[in-house]
Design a protein around this nucleic acid. Structure first.
Lengths: 104, 104
DNA sequence: CATAAGGGCAACCTCCTGGTTGCCCTTATC
DNA sequence: GATAAGGGCAACCAGGAGGTTGCCCTTATG
């Protein structure tokens, strides 16, 4: 994993960022002003959240004219899935060992 | 979702908690002392992390004699997967729409 | 060209988080 | 029964997170 898994989870561990990401996951790039509109947050607050998402690799930005366009970046999602899978796998293995033991 | 998705992610957004959970996902219950051993953390620090995991529903505790036993609880993992799936789904839909548009 | 819109930077504030320490209670154990 | 082991509770602390405001710069637009 390029970015630490924990910081990936941490990036998602905030209501505002989660909704920003959900919005962006429709594939459309948006400017900071565009993402701030409809929020009760300052443009600066949104900017900070976007930077955090960007550092986690969940979002990518590019300047277009005077605007900063932010786009969803799905790759890290796979890292998270990988972690969840490993945890679930361990859990399932434990269960089936237990079952085998009981049925013996 | 019973527990807010963001707080679920937040619970996982910490190295220590992530490793506690990973340890517990092997199906074995462990006491606080057991989980603290081998860590450079205080028992109290570990306790706090466990409480957070417990509030997120990722872990469940029960007193056995003088010990508090903590066990992994897999249910919330599905909530997280559900969120990731919805995001990925939106993304994939956007991609296929784009593809259709381009190939037209 | 004057003005508005989009943003960046930095300072500042408050509250939460992660962690510690000290003390006390309860349950095992010798 | 004395002592050790496992924990809970509360106070405390430093640093980070989330948010705001003010100011300035750049790019569109009338």
């Amino acid at each position: 994993m390029s970015v630490e898994t924990a910081s990936l989870f941490a990036a998602l561990g905030d209501r505002t960022r989660l909704s920003l990401l959900t919005k962006l996951s429709d594939g459309q790039s948006r400017s900071i002003a565009g993402l701030s509109a409809g929020t009760d947050l300052t443009r600066q607050a949104v900017t900070k959240h976007l930077r955090i998402l960007e550092e986690a690799g969940l979002v990518i930005s590019s300047k277009v004219g005077r605007e900063s366009q932010f786009a969803f970046r799905p790759e890290p999602i796979d890292d998270i899935r990988a972690y969840l899978d490993s945890v679930s796998q361990q859990w399932d293995d434990a269960l089936s060992r237990l079952r085998t033991f009981v049925e013996r």
